[in-house]
Design a protein around this nucleic acid. Structure first.
Length: 277
DNA sequence: CCGACGTCCTGCTAGC
DNA sequence: TGCTAGCAGGACGTCG
């Protein structure tokens, strides 16, 4: 499941493969994604050159020389890769942008939770995100993070998954961050002290940074922009390790459902303290 | 306003 | 061996 580290890896991989290249043709599959592609967008992208590619939260933004932006979200099973056009066409291929060097920028998505959109300008992208998209984990002010958590009666798992507070954290890195900060996923935000908030903030930052170094995590579907799998899945402390011994204390990792999501934790390192939900 | 929960979608797997 | 129910979860809509 692509979260910030996976999306960042895709962007870094794609940058040398698509920036400066011109889109010469576009093929679109018959099935719609979460956000439908408008037919009038075809003419807006063909003939345009990609000038930059960047990431915001879990979103990919490819800037075109027209000032417009290709806005891509990978959802759960999205793959955004640049390959030679001769590469066999996989199933669930929804977009193929032919590039001027003979390569092909492809969007593949089995479950179709993702989206590919054309947005007329960067201002409109910002408007689309609005106040709904929170800070990047690397530059959220400690005070803003603490205020958001401590003013809430939701549990920490729900708060970390809330994209309007931190942009980019998903289920895997939420669990890994909570373990690193030694807090239970069901702890209420309002039950945390300022220093506990800061420990969690630093933990999220560290976990995300290490995962980017490892080129993200491949559970099943995820691949980077050049089609390579991630490597961080081998470094998980708790995610997907139910029943296995905690690396810190040896206690069996447990799994429970918090905020509607599978949540993995060490019952000894992450004791339930104060208010929980 | 806030928080909880259902929905979308497909492929894999646990269990009979 | 074959079948099916249940699960995976990012974003968003709906409900109380």
């Amino acid at each position: 499941m692509p979260e910030l580290p996976e999306v960042e890896t895709v962007v870094r991989d794609l940058r040398p493969l698509i920036v400066g290249r011109t889109i010469t043709a576009l093929r679109i599959g018959s099935k719609t994604l979460r956000k439908p592609w408008s037919p009038e967008w075809d003419a807006e992208v063909v003939g345009r050159t990609t000038t930059a590619i960047r990431r915001r939260g879990k979103w990919i933004l490819a800037d075109l020389d027209s000032g417009a932006v290709l806005l891509v979200h990978l959802g759960m099973t999205g793959q955004f890769t640049a390959v030679t056009a001769a590469e066999p066409k996989p199933d669930h291929l929804h977009f193929a942008f032919a590039l001027s060097d003979g390569s092909e920028l492809r969007y593949r998505d089995t479950r179709r939770f993702g989206s590919v959109q054309w947005i007329a300008s960067d201002e409109l992208v910002q408007l689309a995100f609005g106040e709904k998209l929170g800070h990047e984990p690397f530059d959220i002010p400690a005070a803003a993070f603490a205020t958001a958590l401590r003013s809430s009666n939701r549990n920490l798992k729900a708060l970390l998954l809330d994209q309007s507070i931190l942009a980019g954290v998903g289920n895997i890195y939420a669990d890994e961050s909570l373990f690193r900060a030694k807090v239970h996923p069901q702890t209420l935000g309002s039950a945390l002290t300022k220093s506990q908030c800061d420990r969690l903030r630093v933990a999220v930052e560290a976990v995300i940074a290490k995962a980017i170094e490892g080129r993200g995590s491949t559970i099943r579907d995820y691949v980077g922009g050049s089609g390579l799998r991630g490597g961080y899945q081998d470094e998980f402390a708790v995610y997907g390790r139910t029943g296995e011994p905690c690396a810190k204390c040896g206690t069996a990792i447990e799994m429970t459902r918090v905020a509607g999501r599978a949540s993995h934790f060490c019952p000894r390192c992450q004791k339930r303290r104060g208010g929980t939900r």
